[in-house]
Nucleic acid binder design. Structure first.
Lengths: 159, 159
DNA sequence: ACAGCATTGCTGCGCCGCAACATAAAGGTC
DNA sequence: GACCTTTATGTTGCGGCGCAGCAATGCTGT
């Protein structure tokens, strides 16, 4: 599995550029429109490896021009999440740009550092298999698993 | 593992009585106080196998007497969750009485039926193992895993 | 009885999330 | 280009969620 916990001092701008390029390609392929507002929201999220609340996003988008209403941000977020470009962190009421090109549909494990707030994405076939087995033995037909784990990341553990 | 998806027509009062007895025993053993307010909240939650929002709980508690303020309910919920008697369903902003006597600390998998709203609790050592392995390979020290799966329960699937 | 602690009540507030409607922009058709 | 359809954005408004800060009350042990 690919564990993604980027170093605290890496180049965020580079991340954002990569994420935007990827988003562009995805939207072109699917015939979806990556509008200015959607791009702004994705840029803001990609420039941070911490999950951002909708109202934090509003503030950051407002720093570059007009202040969008909450609903505008939520609609952009709905689009981005539906395209798999952004994840929602349920336990934080916050959103996070998806960095991995993990296979769509595969369950993602979010590793949330309680100290620095960074969130890593992990994907594990073993987790998926054990979850499906557990659900099946309960007669349950699973759709979308949400897995969020609080803890301490490697960088903070050293400090 | 013990999958718990009670039949839709089972005896809720019985569940509630069992849950209350268990809570009483737990609190006596730990020297904690199961006050009237905390008991009321737990009764309300135990009488439903669907997760309830804080404001739904307020309404249900108010039906038996004075209407508590939101903060009062949240404090009771904080207590009950800290004692492992109630779980919080992050993806729903709602709370659920814990039915299983599952080992404290063990990760619980919530199976949330999109059709009837019922929530089953499952506990699986395999899931725990695979999650710990995934976290460890990312250099992550896990604390409290949150696992919530949407889908369709066995009862609704038949219908 | 008294001091110390836990619990509850009260006031107030900020964030989250979206419905309903109106407006503007992009794309397709003739 | 003129027109229409579809999609996205702006505006207004509202309700639920969650808790801080302080005051009052109740319980516990000596």
């Amino acid at each position: 599995m690919a564990a993604v916990f980027p170093a605290p001092d890496h180049d965020h701008d580079r991340c954002a550029a990569d994420a935007l390029a990827h988003a562009e390609a995805v939207c072109v392929k699917r015939g979806e429109r990556l509008t200015a507002m959607r791009r702004h929201v994705l840029e803001v999220l990609s420039s941070s490896h911490k999950p951002l609340g909708a109202y934090e996003i509003i503030d950051l988008v407002a720093a570059r021009g007009a202040r969008p209403a909450p609903i505008t941000i939520y609609r952009a977020l709905d689009f981005l999440t539906s395209q798999g470009l952004v994840h929602r962190i349920e336990s934080r009421n916050a959103f996070l740009a998806c960095i991995n090109n993990h296979a769509s549909g595969a369950p993602v494990v979010f590793l949330i550092c309680e100290h620095c707030g960074a969130v890593g994405e992990a994907a594990s076939g073993a987790v998926a298999d054990s979850l499906n087995a557990a659900a099946k033995s309960a007669g349950f037909t699973p759709k979308s698993p949400v897995i969020e784990i609080s803890g301490v990341c490697a960088h903070c553990r050293e400090a």
